[in-house]
Design a protein around this nucleic acid. Structure first.
Lengths: 222, 222
DNA sequence: GCAATCCTTACGGGAAACCGTAAAGCATTA
DNA sequence: TAATGCTTTACGGTTTCCCGTAAGGATTGC
């Protein structure tokens, strides 16, 4: 079993259960941080001390409070850790259940397992830890089981996200076009942007822009 | 201390910690449900058996799964329980931190305490349980402490929420007007609804409807 | 009972979204 | 170089939104 595990989870009510699972599994060294920044520090320190962690279990969303932080989300934490210790095993434990988000985690951040917080997630987590230790790949908790090869959601790329972000900030088409020109993002004609929005509306079955943004918010895309 | 407590929480990772707190506090009977419907059933049964619960601790949001349910949220559960056992003490334990939402819980559903899930929420929860037992009123976990008398968000009433809901579902002005007429909600002229949306846009500093809905989503109003 | 006031609704003009079509730009291929 | 196909952009008409003004109707106060 893993020898040294780092848990990044802000909610104390949840971290208690996660730590319990690790204790059950006889993990000798279990560290727990409530802020992403702390997590990165601990990983760096452990590397420097030649006693690196062999597993990270992290949440995705962290509450913001008075404290000023560099890393706001689990995604950012993983990205930062990948730069200093890319070989660390990574399990994400989050309430998020949107396939778009989760696929990105596997494909772009190289996580080993994703466990969705739910009614039986503790045993799912336990299994995921074991499977990860046995070098299984792309482990997904059973309530999710969507098709990894489904192209549909993958096709929504950062370009679309940029449009949705600006729309949600009250930009009109022309302003988005201008912003894209300033940032050298192409295509940037109002017409092209309009067309792209149209595709998104068809894809998400949205009646109009207002509806589209409401859906995007629900999906956690913006 | 309380003699019989019901916990409604779908995430197993969290309910473990909540039950632990109750055990620490020497509560002799602790029941736990993962669905709101079950919660209501248990309360009714306990009433019929003349052994009613004296405290309910509930989450607000519950994941939906294959199971068909009548009550989808903690709000709905509390509302239903209030009809059969209005005197039961009620603590809400949720991640929600929007003042509008929380005020509504105190003012319209008569909850006794609100504890926001966070980095030290377990001790907050422990304190809230004690305070509730001592008949203190309107207990709020310390990280929230907003002003209860702040009129600002209170002024947004259910009429506004209805408009925002329909907007977020892709309704155009005329459809909203029609819907309101069907439901006998007044005012229902397109012009009045338009004016009301305008007020909301001014209040939330939104540039247009798209922006407004994005903000409303962020505030948890819809 | 009447005026003042507020709330609701109607109307109209201009802006932006919505939606289809056509032209221009650009790469690939022969 | 020319033909072809794809992407991007331009354009125009219709709908909806946006915003100001004003008419109609109910309520309040005197």
């Amino acid at each position: 079993m893993f020898k040294k595990v780092l848990v990044a989870e802000d909610l104390d009510s949840i971290s208690i259960a996660v730590v319990q699972v690790l204790e059950e599994l006889k993990v000798p060294v279990i560290h727990h941080v409530k802020y992403c920044d702390e997590g990165l520090l601990k990983v760096k320190k452990a590397m420097a001390d030649k006693e690196p962690y062999d597993l990270l279990i992290t949440d995705l969303s962290f509450k913001s409070d008075h404290r000023k932080v560099d890393l706001n989300t689990g995604d950012e934490l993983i990205e930062a850790i990948n730069k200093v210790q890319p070989n660390i095993k990574k399990i994400v434990f989050s309430i998020e259940d949107k396939s778009y988000r989760i696929k990105t985690l596997f494909n772009e951040l190289g996580i080993n397992a994703y466990v969705s917080k739910g009614r039986n997630s503790i045993s799912e987590l336990r299994n995921a830890i074991k499977s990860t230790f046995n070098n299984e790949e792309k482990i997904l908790s059973s309530d999710l089981s969507f098709n990894f090869n489904d192209k549909a959601l993958i096709e929504i790329e950062s370009y679309d996200i940029s449009i949705l972000k600006l729309l949600s900030q009250g930009y009109i088409l022309e302003s988005i076009s201008k912003e894209f020109k300033d940032l050298s993002i192409t295509p940037n004609g109002t017409s092209s942007i309009e067309k792209r929005i149209n595709k998104l509306k068809i894809y998400f079955k949205a009646n109009n822009n207002v509806h589209l943004i409401a859906i995007a918010k629900d999906f956690g895309l913006v």
